[in-house]
Computed example of a mutant assay.
Amino acid sequence: MTHALVLYAHPCEESYASALHRATVDTLKGRGWTVDDCDLYAEGFDPILTAEERRGYHEVGPNRGPVEDYVKRIEAADALVLCFPVWNFGYPAILKGFFDRVFLPGVSFRLEDGQVRPNLTHIKKLAAVTTYGGTRVRAFMAGDPPRKMVERHLWHVTRPTTVKYLALYDMNRVTQAGLTANLDRVRKELETL
């Protein structure tokens, strides 16, 4: 049975991101997966890397202390699914802070002779469910950092067999029919994750 960690990053229950989050969790559970639904805002995750944490960043083992519960959750997962809006062509700060604080040496990667080696290779499925206010062309022209972070950085530390990046672009002008169609597309794509 697949065990997914869903990282959700949006503060508003009434948002379209929240609808995408619910569709994601429901679809994965409907497939018979177990889901650890990590709503970073609801859990009050602190995204700030402290000076003490930064000083101890490379001390593998003790560096996990402040975020041990989150480390255990990521280590228990076979699948990692992110649900987030793109803000200013990046992750919401709380999600970026999660990666800064939890994806530590000895957790998401290990250093061998100065080279970064993947350390979350038990994660076999990786997906992102996201929205952009701008068009796909505008995101492309800006370099589309969130897509690259998922498809390059997260791919590198996990080496999954399946990667899906499910983005709805141009949220500022999408119709209700477009929102509904996207929810259906997300459910369909997650059925084959």
Rank of each mutant, 00 (worst) to 15 (best):
residue 142 A to Y: 10
residue 117 R to F: 02
residue 139 A to L: 10
residue 9 A to N: 05
residue 176 Q to P: 00
residue 134 G to Y: 09
residue 36 D to A: 14
residue 20 L to C: 11
residue 2 T to W: 05
residue 58 H to Y: 13
residue 78 D to S: 14
residue 43 E to G: 08
residue 54 R to T: 09
residue 157 V to S: 05
residue 189 E to I: 00
residue 165 Y to Q: 06
residue 183 L to K: 10
residue 63 N to T: 10
residue 122 H to F: 01
residue 112 E to A: 10
residue 97 G to K: 11
residue 114 G to Q: 08
residue 71 V to C: 02
residue 102 V to C: 11
residue 144 D to F: 02
residue 114 G to S: 10
residue 32 G to Y: 05
residue 5 L to A: 10
residue 193 L to H: 08
residue 78 D to C: 05
residue 108 S to I: 09
residue 76 A to R: 15
residue 29 K to I: 08
residue 116 V to N: 10
residue 34 T to K: 13
residue 127 A to G: 07
residue 107 V to D: 01
residue 87 W to Q: 07
residue 49 L to G: 04
residue 98 F to W: 05
residue 29 K to A: 13
residue 23 A to H: 06
residue 80 L to Y: 02
residue 69 D to M: 02
residue 154 L to S: 03
residue 30 G to I: 06
residue 11 P to G: 11
residue 15 S to R: 13
residue 163 V to F: 00
residue 188 K to M: 05
residue 22 R to L: 04
residue 145 P to Y: 00
residue 64 R to D: 12
residue 89 F to P: 09
residue 102 V to W: 04
residue 20 L to N: 10
residue 187 R to W: 01
residue 20 L to K: 14
residue 96 K to T: 09
residue 16 Y to D: 03
residue 75 E to L: 15
residue 40 L to N: 05
residue 59 E to H: 12
residue 55 R to A: 14
residue 33 W to P: 01
residue 108 S to R: 09
residue 143 G to M: 00
residue 98 F to V: 03
residue 113 D to F: 04
residue 4 A to L: 04
residue 181 A to M: 02
residue 135 T to V: 04
residue 140 F to P: 00
residue 80 L to D: 02
residue 126 L to E: 08
residue 177 A to G: 11
residue 163 V to N: 01
residue 14 E to M: 03
residue 64 R to N: 07
residue 129 V to S: 03
residue 148 K to Q: 12
residue 56 G to I: 00
residue 20 L to M: 14
residue 137 V to M: 10
residue 73 R to D: 07
residue 73 R to V: 08
residue 150 V to Y: 01
residue 121 T to F: 01
residue 95 L to N: 03
residue 129 V to L: 02
residue 103 F to Q: 06
residue 173 R to H: 15
residue 94 I to Q: 06
residue 108 S to A: 15
residue 87 W to L: 04
residue 153 H to N: 12
residue 72 K to Y: 01
residue 100 D to Y: 09
residue 166 L to T: 08
residue 122 H to K: 09
residue 12 C to D: 08
residue 27 T to I: 01
residue 70 Y to H: 13
residue 78 D to A: 04
residue 107 V to S: 07
residue 22 R to A: 13
residue 78 D to M: 06
residue 57 Y to M: 06
residue 60 V to I: 15
residue 140 F to R: 13
residue 184 D to K: 15
residue 152 R to T: 07
residue 6 V to N: 03
residue 115 Q to K: 15
residue 104 L to I: 05
residue 14 E to V: 04
residue 96 K to C: 04
residue 148 K to N: 06
residue 157 V to R: 11
residue 137 V to N: 08
residue 171 M to C: 08
residue 73 R to S: 09
residue 54 R to P: 01
residue 107 V to L: 05
residue 186 V to I: 14
residue 2 T to D: 07
residue 67 V to F: 03
residue 39 D to N: 15
residue 189 E to L: 00
residue 143 G to K: 01
residue 110 R to S: 03
residue 146 P to Y: 03
residue 156 H to R: 06
residue 68 E to R: 15
residue 166 L to R: 07
residue 134 G to F: 08
residue 121 T to H: 07
residue 182 N to A: 02
residue 171 M to Q: 14
residue 182 N to Q: 10
residue 15 S to M: 14
residue 106 G to S: 12
residue 11 P to C: 09
residue 144 D to H: 07
residue 186 V to W: 00
residue 187 R to K: 14
residue 192 T to P: 00
residue 59 E to P: 05
residue 101 R to K: 15
residue 56 G to A: 08
residue 88 N to G: 10
residue 5 L to G: 02
residue 115 Q to G: 00
residue 141 M to Q: 12
residue 155 W to E: 05
residue 98 F to P: 00
residue 55 R to V: 02
residue 64 R to Q: 13
residue 127 A to Q: 08
residue 1 M to N: 11
